[in-house]
Write a protein that binds this DNA or RNA. Structure first.
Lengths: 219, 219
DNA sequence: AAATATTTTTAGGCTTGCCTAAAAATTGTA
DNA sequence: TACAATTTTTAGGCAAGCCTAAAAATATTT
């Protein structure tokens, strides 16, 4: 249907729009896809011809409903495959993304549906990101950043804002995984660091860099 | 490492050599890959440059050990994925090939190994074809064609020579699956058809076209 | 508002993998 | 053996995706 490359462009544009940006500019797409602005302009024109996005020269792009569907379906497949790799094949959460980048382009609606059933209809991937439904609906998570949470509440670790392997490995090291309970005992305005108590009454300090990349919900 | 297309060429050449052909000619590759002889010549040159096969103009090609390894690994991945689709996702044996054609190109040795373990180290795919080991060893099956088997032995359906969906669906219709026990009660020299008794004492006739595409082993 | 800096687009070119048409080599046949 | 048929290769070209360098448009400073 659509090429590997086209799907990656659509997915990238979709994710950039999710991050608040109204209209997506050429350079930001190029940066994410590790390519050059000129290449992005080429591809944008092709995707516009196929009615997958709206494009006006020098004005950036926005996905059409058709383009959004393709993008969301790619995200759906990515996250379902991550669940498979994590739950069934016992990969670490820091290892699943790269392989899912390949698997998300496998083209078979029946496969996606059967995979979803096999995994028992997961709602979130191993990083806490919601899995779009077959119809393209994504349940907005009501997670908040740990750095924005109030002290003295029981919080549940529910996701990450930074998906890089190094960050995930760091969380492994400090034993913070999805489901870990966290209480903020102290917030330091000076450097943004926080003191926390984890499940099992373990006390630790999180730097701001850590605290701003952990998503939690109030228990 | 190697492109989707390169892997498909190597796999095709490998399979043609398995079918007895010593040196593989351009046209037969083109036919299998549904492309043109000129395109095959182009690709053959590239693969020869990469030492994946030996090529002499107008003389056909033969895989090098390096090329064979890539081909066998692709076959290994294909058959493991077929097992996954059949055993875990409950696809029919007539549905798995097409999807595995895509999945076989996913590039992650760790994934292949973990998948193999998850499937509990299967030795044969859903069509009875042997799964190469990680080292590239393929156990030769001692299966024989049903049309060549002797009457009055208990035979076990163990594989197919024709892998097309129509043939597999036909076998579904006549309730012949891997493991079905078959006894030949009569062989007709005239048209090559045979009379058989299946597990459960069900008597049927198989045309030569069916009998020559079923692989069995003696129980 | 003019000058400067940045962003985006255009122009031209590259590689991969494919094509057609024509030439060359091989194989089959009279 | 020579002619015909087939197979294979070469030559030239096309689309997808990428690149660099230069031009054009937009944004930012002064």
């Amino acid at each position: 249907m659509y090429s590997y490359t086209e799907e990656n462009y659509l997915k990238t544009i979709y994710k950039l729009s999710e991050q608040g940006n109204e209209s997506i500019n050429t350079n930001s797409i190029a940066e994410v896809l590790q390519t050059k602005a000129a290449s992005v302009t080429d591809m944008i024109k092709k995707l516009a011809d196929k009615k997958l996005l709206n494009y006006e020269k020098y004005k950036g792009v926005a996905l059409t409903e058709k383009g959004r569907k393709v993008a969301v379906d790619t995200v759906r497949k990515h996250r379902l495959w991550e669940c498979f790799l994590y739950d069934k094949l016992k990969f670490g959460w820091d290892e699943v993304h790269e392989i899912a980048e390949q698997l998300e382009h496998i083209n078979s609606e029946l496969l996606t549906d059967k995979l979803e059933e096999f995994l028992d209809f997961p709602t979130h991937d191993p990083h806490g990101d919601p899995i779009p439904t077959k119809n393209g609906v994504i349940k907005k998570s009501n997670f908040i950043l740990l750095c924005d949470a109030k002290p003295n509440q029981t919080l549940v670790m529910s996701g990450v804002a930074d998906h890089t392997a190094v960050f995930l490995q760091h969380l492994n090291k400090i034993s913070v995984v999805l489901g870990t309970e966290i209480q903020i005992t102290e917030k330091n305005d000076y450097d943004g660091s926080i003191a926390v108590k984890l499940s099992g009454n373990k006390s630790m300090y999180f730097s701001k860099d850590v605290a701003k990349n952990i998503l939690v919900k109030v228990k």
